[in-house]
Computed example of a mutant assay.
Amino acid sequence: MSAFHTLGHRLWSLLPRSARREALFGAMAVLAPRVATPEPTGRGPLVLAGYLSARTGLGEGARRMLGAMRMAGLDPVPADLTAAHRQGPAISDAEPGRAVPEGPGTIVVHVNGPMLPWGLLALGRRAVAGKRIIAYWAWELPVLPADWRRGYAACHRIWAPSRFCAEVFARPGHPAPTIVPHPPPAPDPSPLSRADLGLAEGAFLSLCVFDAASSVARKNPLAAIEAHARAFGDDPARVLVLKTHGTGHAGPAWAPVAEAAARHRNVVVMDRHLPRRDLWALMRHADVLISLHRAEGYGLAIAEAMALGRPVVATGWSGSTDVMQGPGCHAVGYTLVPARDPQGTYDMGEARWAEADVGEAAAILRRIADEPGLREPQPFRLPAPDYAAALGVRG
């Protein structure tokens, strides 16, 4: 690398994160192909573009939509944006994307607002020309960051996974968002036992699942640790498992969680990537899923636990309220407080999110542990989305 490039990279890194985002997304919006006007009918090939090989929530959502569309009799062309948007490392066995056919049709772009123009640029002008563009967005706060504004000019329609998200995305002069929930998960656990996972066979097992690289503050594992400690102290027969990954990218936000977990001998931190079927196995062995999140756009882990028939103890606010329909769901009360996120993603002073009632959560955990009937498997799958109706191809 030349001295000029080295200096340029250093100067770029010295800019505030907000300035870097604005410069990057502004440049992409200028370079991106313009969507067709008036809105095309959408007749023609269906394309699903997104992070189809990324180990992220957005990647998992895109993969699930791809599979569900196929199950519904549609034949979407997969277009993987993982590498173009630097969302790696990629899943090694992911289905490769394909070239987007030119001409009329519909592209469902499974990336959030600020990234949408960049997504269209990665797909290419010829691929985008003449097509109807549907953006599939998810967000966890009742206020959108300013840099989402560019996404509205880069799509004709918006799909949202929950009522909460649809209300956030509604904007005068743009068609009302359509609620298209994630498809219900189909459990597929591997044969791993508790012993294989390094967990005690006879213990009451609470499970908290989150990606530390996304936002530790939003997922709020500290509240799960506190609720578990209030409910059970350090009882070795009552174990809390924090299943996470990406702690090395969480910065200072991870240290308080690691310190809190280390103070309790019955809290286990499982910091590693698990193949999808092994993660299903871990969920199957849990007695309860605990998610004292501060905000969710949807709540994939909650839907997965319900599909396995596991009880769920979760904050009763935001997008997860759409998901918590199963017989074993226990909504925890909350108060709304200013959103503060050391990792920066959700640090918006004008926005508020939920602070779960830890004492109430602890009482629910004790009740589930003391009453075996509350742990009887009660599998519940959410209704499948009607993609054909949502697409509403005209003409």
Rank of each mutant, 00 (worst) to 15 (best):
A3M: 15
H5I: 15
W12V: 10
L24Q: 08
A27M: 06
A29K: 12
L31V: 09
A32K: 10
R43Q: 14
P45M: 13
V47R: 04
Y51T: 14
G57C: 13
L58V: 13
L66I: 07
A68W: 14
M69S: 01
L74V: 08
V77R: 02
L81H: 00
L81W: 12
H85I: 10
V108H: 03
M115R: 15
M115Q: 12
P117Q: 03
G119V: 04
L121K: 08
G124V: 08
R132W: 01
A135I: 12
A135L: 01
D147V: 11
Y152N: 05
P161R: 00
F164P: 07
I179S: 14
P185T: 02
S190T: 12
S193A: 07
A203L: 05
L207D: 05
A213G: 13
R218L: 14
A223Q: 11
F232E: 05
D235M: 09
A250N: 00
P256T: 00
A258M: 10
L282G: 08
L282N: 02
S291H: 04
A303M: 01
A305R: 06
V313M: 03
W317R: 14
W317G: 03
D322S: 01
P327S: 07
G328F: 01
P338I: 01
P342I: 13
G349H: 05
P379W: 06
P379C: 01
G392M: 15
R394Q: 15
